[in-house]
């Protein structure tokens, strides 16, 4: 990677997690930079890691700062939605590696179970699109591909992007949906008037209306997620608000067998998503709509 992408702050805490192993290795190098012979370490490493200052830490923070800055609470009524814990000071984001995704739909199934999506509702929060090679052509994509996947195609999982500029939130006539300070777009099931304007304004087909009363087998119910309240109102992916605000990761990230999904906090420079956004070439779906989605794709 380039010089710009690898500076490390002196005050970085001990990193954790899979992708950070290389990083902790580098940091170890930095800590011992004075001892190591300068010639045995690439010049940029010894230069940055050895003398990382507060100003450089700020520079590093800056590379994601515009994104974090843009992602503000929208129409936030001041108190969190009833069925979730209050937002922390995180800024949630997800990165999906489409090169790794094999289209197995395990994220879809895990999500259905975790979020009490009605088994009769006819929708899932996550839609995996089977894409033709060579282009990102949604009109040629197939969300109903046969299980197993085709090695000649590639797979694009789409769900609520928790946009920084959420058209659904702007379009809701009664402020029954809003963006919380940590970036999660939530719906107040007790307020939704079922006008379905959010379904219309969403560019990602991420919102779904409960045309039928959702049926979830009693044994499979997740007590943390409402069920009855969802009849006749709109629901969608919440980045598993019931898990992520309690320190867990989302169900889809947990279920992915190939580790194609990374979820984390952009405010934390050590999080996987922060590192991926800074070190990899990432892209977002339908950038032209200007919704500034908080899910990035890589690969």
């Amino acid at each position: 990677m380039t010089k710009k992408n690898d500076p490390i702050p002196a005050d970085a805490t001990a990193p954790e997690g899979l992708t950070l192993s290389r990083r902790s290795f580098i940091e170890g190098l930095g800590a011992t930079a004075g001892i190591l012979a300068a010639g045995s370490v690439p010049a940029f490493l010894s230069a940055t890691a050895g003398s990382a200052t507060a100003s450089e830490a700020a520079v590093e923070g800056d590379s994601l700062a515009p994104i974090i800055e843009e992602d503000q609470a929208v129409n936030y009524p001041g108190k969190p939605v009833k069925y979730a814990d209050p937002a922390g000071d995180q800024k949630w984001a997800m990165v999906i590696d489409v090169k790794a995704c094999i289209g197995c739909r395990r994220c879809v199934y895990a999500c259905v179970k975790e979020n009490n999506i009605g088994r009769n509702s006819g929708f899932t929060y996550i839609q995996v699109l089977e894409m033709e090679p060579g282009k990102i052509d949604l009109e040629k994509a197939d969300p109903h591909y046969t299980e197993g996947g085709d090695p000649d195609k590639w797979y694009l999982p789409v769900q609520c992007m928790q946009c920084a500029k959420p058209t659904c939130v702007y379009g809701c006539p009664v402020i029954a949906t809003w963006k919380e300070p940590d970036g999660i777009v939530v719906i107040d099931y007790d307020k939704c008037i079922a006008c379905r304007n959010c379904l219309v304004t969403c560019p990602y087909d991420a919102r779904h209306f409960n045309w039928v009363e959702p049926e979830v087998p009693a044994a499979e119910r997740n007590p943390l997620v409402p069920v009855e309240e969802k009849a006749g109102v709109v629901e969608k992916c919440t980045f598993c608000i019931q898990r992520t605000r309690n320190g867990q990761t989302t169900a889809c990230v947990e279920a992915c067998p190939v580790g194609a999904r990374k979820f984390g906090d952009l405010n934390d420079p050590e999080s996987e998503v922060s590192i991926l956004l800074k070190t990899r070439r990432v892209w977002r779906l339908k950038e032209e709509t200007g919704n500034e989605p908080m899910i990035w794709y890589v690969g």
Binding site: N75, Y170, G171, C172, P173, V174, I175, A176, K191, C192, I193, A194, C195, N197, G232, V233
Partner: peptide, 25 residues
């Protein structure tokens, strides 16, 4: 519109908490 709403009484939110960015309002 009223007959399309599943809970017509919630229409009162249009008066209580109207959202200025929604053309519906």
């Amino acid at each position: 519109i009223i007959t399309d709403m599943e809970r017509p009484w919630r229409a009162v939110y249009m008066l209580l908490t109207p959202n200025g960015t929604s053309p519906f309002v």
